[in-house]
Design a protein around this nucleic acid. Sequence first.
DNA 1: TTGTAAGCGTTATCAC
DNA 2: GTGATAACGCTTACAA
Lengths: 335, 335
Amino acid sequence: MAAKLADVAKHAGVSTATASRVLNNRMVMPISVATMDRIKRAARDLDYRPNPMARALLTGRTHALGLFSREMGDPHFVQLLEAAEAEALQLGYHLVVSSSQEAVGGPGRVDGLLVFGAPEQQVRARRPDGFPVITVNSTLDPERDTIGWSDAEGMYSAVRHLAELGHRRIAGLFCYGEEPHADTPKLVGFRRAVEQYGVEWRPYWRGRDPFEVQQTNQFDNGYLAAQDLLSDWRGFTGIVARNDYIALGALRALREAGKSVPGEVSVVGYNDSILATCADPPLTSIRTPIAVAGAMAVQLLVQALSGGSVEHGCTMLPVSLTVRGSTARPGSSEG
Amino acid sequence: MAAKLADVAKHAGVSTATASRVLNNRMVMPISVATMDRIKRAARDLDYRPNPMARALLTGRTHALGLFSREMGDPHFVQLLEAAEAEALQLGYHLVVSSSQEAVGGPGRVDGLLVFGAPEQQVRARRPDGFPVITVNSTLDPERDTIGWSDAEGMYSAVRHLAELGHRRIAGLFCYGEEPHADTPKLVGFRRAVEQYGVEWRPYWRGRDPFEVQQTNQFDNGYLAAQDLLSDWRGFTGIVARNDYIALGALRALREAGKSVPGEVSVVGYNDSILATCADPPLTSIRTPIAVAGAMAVQLLVQALSGGSVEHGCTMLPVSLTVRGSTARPGSSEG
DNA sequence: TTGTAAGCGTTATCAC
DNA sequence: GTGATAACGCTTACAA
């Protein structure tokens, strides 16, 4: 059985109150150096570790943060996890992960909640009033505590990059549920850019709801969608994909069709994942600030917990374009 | 303020004892249906949720499991996380992740610990006696509770695959710290296979400790190591890589050197990650049962918690070979 | 300077 | 059938 505070106190010949005060540095009134030493020594000797549950019960603080994501298993999510965990560790908090919003726990189990990738409305609605929730997301709700970036801006940059290279006919590879008239951020940004730059465009997609598809399916869908594109539209010179998986699928379809990249066709991916680095040719891709957002979200949450309730609002981090070898001026070689 | 048991009890006009019994289905003695209904109704009306900390303090059970890994951020780890989380959810447990063994918590914070990828000795040594720890790992210790697979077997299969295709000269792409005489499981398996099949072999590596390198560095190291290989050994026809990142780096070096895959050189990766699927050509790779192991580890841990302490020992799961387009008989085409 | 005692929200052991 | 009441291990007024 682990040593408890009473053991330490007895060992040091003091009361639990004094022991507690010393061990927590809560010395409202001065304590003699001698007893301090005795207590600290006893704690060390007995390998005393305060029971987190007892402490939590009393203080109402678990020192744990929940992290909820429907996309656990996505390499993109793991970047958030890594950053958030490191930050939480730094600040003395634990991270409880869950793919179920109900199960991740609320007050009593965790002190605050980090939500990744779920529509904010759904989250807030199910939470007790006042429970600190911050969402890391690409769909910002200015009314709520959100930190993230704009996928509209990301897609806009992707199209702009191609347009500025001189591409006039650009295909968009999306997902089911992202028909051209849809209002997802990525489509909004896409449409805004093609309109503004006056380029011709067509959307393609295969497969099902983005949340339900496996990564390998995304790759396959990209492959199939690109095949559709190849047999449907002869004049296109640029492709913008919803994510890197889809872009890599397209890369394969293009290679099989004998189209050179970036000679005949330029391709832009999204997320700037490890896939983009490893692709052949290396993929120009949109980099989202997911790791930074994860760390900031933890900071904000902890800050809110310390200082009562800090109304944070909505922080928007910049999205950037990583240019690699899959994009070039149209017809730049062998085209 | 959230409703507590006392509120429910008062609302239903009973004592907390009765309320507790009904709400937990712990009815040693029969309880009148009428009061049962009243209590359940009160609980629903007040949206009563038992305080996990109070319960934990009393029962000594947190219903949380710790998951410790130094490789958080690795897409390979995320497969374990996903499977373990799903299983934990299923069994009513929470998952606390941490990249620090100290911080993930022990008794009082979590009921048991899942350790991924760390040498078992280091783990057990730092844990209080009797605290349930199970390691998911590739380096099995028959003395301890371990579940995993043999990377020696995996590497052996990779070499065997090439040897059976007829390759007689095989290069191994490893990491710094895995010099040919090292005793890491992968090298042991590699050496055993090349000896048994009588094939000529040479090891190559670049970079630093495997635990410290980023994924993109692994890719770069694979690229550089393959370049070393290309300028060093003319007669090789097969490559076995320590992981898929390295294999993809090698693929790039081979392409740049004008070597066709699998026509002139066959390449085998390790982990069968998404990279293997998306590579061009698709990568033959060794698939480890990491997801299954993660789920089983959670099951075992929970089982041990329920039934006192189940001595499990050491379970070894089979490793398999996924054959894709990067391997063929030597000189099978244009070679 | 230090000790006493109340209480955090449960569950469990008795008594009624 | 049901209700007091004592824990669980800790923090913190308040008392001494």
